[in-house]
Nucleic acid binder design. Structure first.
Lengths: 348, 348
DNA sequence: AAAATGTCCGTAAACGTTTACCACGCCGCT
DNA sequence: AGCGGCGTGGTAAACGTTTACGGACATTTT
């Protein structure tokens, strides 16, 4: 069942059917009524592929995330989808799982699908691969790491602001031994967060001890491992900033296994403010980076670029701010000024 | 740049290009080599829409989930995507967010996209809307609730098994006052879980008190509210089964606010075994329902149906089992046989 | 009253593939 | 030598839309 069936039944040409459906030209009220009637009676739905083929626009945006399994991203996907369908766009979603092979595959899929633009929210997995995309002159939107080029937008995140707030918050409570669990450092945003941490520490006049900077992976497991490593040291930090919330949650879980009470023995701060952050125990103090805001920004950037006929040579920059959210995972350091006592396990 | 450019450059016809690319007929080694060379040199990627149009197969499967924001689903999406791309399929993803409007929209999007099949993993939001899909004779796969019909597969979940294990586990520790937090009951699977709970209680000879069965929504907030309500009662349960893990986590969070220690004052059991279940504090005892298994089953069902030329009149049934995973959120009831003492807050 | 303008609508080409059909050349058989 | 069969490659139709172009008619202008 196609547009010709509709045309036949409404006794008009296919052109008229197309015009009434797309409201792209005025068509006589009587005819339009007949068309709509035929559409309803036949249960006609236009064929998206055919439309795409002839119009040269697929009305699909690619969305590349690093790991949909990380609770940071579903929120983004959800709102990206919501605003996309409002504008009659579809999404071609893929998660790269930090795997270059999958990134390559993703690019191929995007091109074969003839998407009208791609949002690359992998926080720094950009590559020569993207050259393929660039080559096609596709609208792109990156987070943090995009090159200055026509048709590519960039969402810059002000990581430093929230992180500085976090460090100040800890310092105000007289923490001096503050550690940091990084993300995977080949991710640009992970490196930036760590740098912002070190920078903030120096600003305040606190020492950044190299052994207090320990590697995570932005996953739960990395947080666990990080705390394990940290507690093999002779002297431990009294507070710990984490590169994202998943890391922080992993840290808290490991603390539980080790019998370390949060926040009494160790203050923990996360990053992202995923929804779960308010539901772990204790509720996690964290730096908020609005996922819905990010998704909307990304979509708007793409849409704007699609509509623009004369792109700016350097692309467009957007800004996303961050902000500390106080909850219950931080407090004063234990035994202020004294040696640390191992605390009893919370299990009884 | 299209197949004709490739043909021209390789000095063959478009038919030959198509044949070598799709490996659908034997083509002379020399010619094939020339074709591949041309493809590489031009950076040619076939146009998916054109392919779909002429072949009548879009190689896209629809995937409808209820809420991608619920950590149960990302896991499914991830593995569904992984196996889909292995078979050269794309995904048209949508989450209905329990909203009939969005369900309607989803169906329309699926049809306009001419998907080759749809996996409906909403646990019971099926509707007259699906008649549109059925009407098109599309392969469908449901979880729990699909009708017996040609081209529709069904994944039956053995909720009862895991839930019975959970109740037995609790009963073995001499819990007698066991409560249940339901999901949204218009979801078939939520009702089934509750029924399985009541059934198991009766089997064991434990009373199911109506006031101990309280309404949740399969979200964190519902769990919080449920425990609030429960603790307004004169007498409280000593153990609580939850219709899913998110609910259980909400319960635990509210317990924290109320100063109720888990599991000392209250044993909690979840359902689903989302990854986070092992990372909350204390680690959640829960009934596992493998998300990766589910995703694979759904995809295989669709793929099989697509290939099948003579579908069975009643569709196909698949089975997914469930199983209790013991962790640390359950223990013996407090003050066995005595009145409950309010316990001190965990915060100090 | 004729010309000019405007409003609708239909015809047909075009989008980029796949594939049915046919032509060609080669091989082996009688 | 002639013929059938087979392996291979090209021609062109088809998929379901949108839209440029032109025609028919109505309305306004001269």
């Amino acid at each position: 069942m196609d547009i010709r069936d509709v045309a036949k039944r409404a006794k008009v040409s296919t052109a008229t059917v197309s015009r009434t459906i797309n409201q792209v030209a005025t068509v006589d009220t009587q005819l339009a009524k007949r068309v709509w009637k035929a559409v309803a009676e036949l249960g006609y739905y236009p064929n998206r592929q055919a439309r795409a083929l002839v119009s040269g626009k697929s009305r699909v945006f690619g969305l590349i995330v690093s790991e949909i399994t990380n609770p940071f991203f579903p929120e983004i996907v959800q709102t990206f989808e919501t605003v996309a369908v409002e504008h009659n766009y579809e999404i071609l979603l893929t998660s790269t799982i930090h795997d270059p092979k999958r990134m390559e595959l993703a690019v191929r899929r995007m091109i074969e699908g003839r998407v009208d633009g791609v949002a690359i929210l992998t926080f720094g997995m950009e590559d020569e691969l993207l050259a393929h995309l660039r080559f096609r002159n596709l609208p792109l939107v990156f987070i943090d790491v995009g090159p200055k080029a026509p048709r590519v937008s960039n969402i810059r995140v002000d990581y430093a602001h929230g992180i500085r707030q976090a460090v100040q918050h800890l310092a105000a409570m007289k923490h001096e031994r503050i550690g940091f669990v990084t993300g995977p450092l080949r991710l640009r945003s992970a490196a930036v967060r760590r740098d912002a941490f070190e920078e903030s520490m120096r600003e305040i006049g606190l020492p950044v001890k190299p052994e207090f900077i320990v590697a995570g992976d932005h996953r739960l497991e990395g947080g666990k491992r990080a705390l394990q490593d940290l507690y093999k040291l002779r002297e431990q930090p009294t507070a710990l900033l984490c590169s994202n919330d998943m890391t922080a949650i992993g840290v808290m879980r490991q603390a539980f296994d080790l019998g370390i009470a949060i926040p009494r023995d160790l203050s923990v701060v996360g990053f992202d403010d995923i929804r779960m952050a308010d539901f772990v125990i204790p509720p996690l103090t964290t730096v908020q980076m609005s996922q819905t805001e990010l998704a909307k920004l990304a979509f708007d950037a793409l849409l704007r670029e699609v509509k623009r006929d004369d792109p700016t040579p350097d692309g467009t920059e957007y800004l996303l701010t961050t902000q500390l959210i106080l909850r219950s995972s931080t407090t004063f350091p234990p035994d202020l000024g004294h040696a640390r006592q191992p605390s009893a396990s919370k299990r009884d």
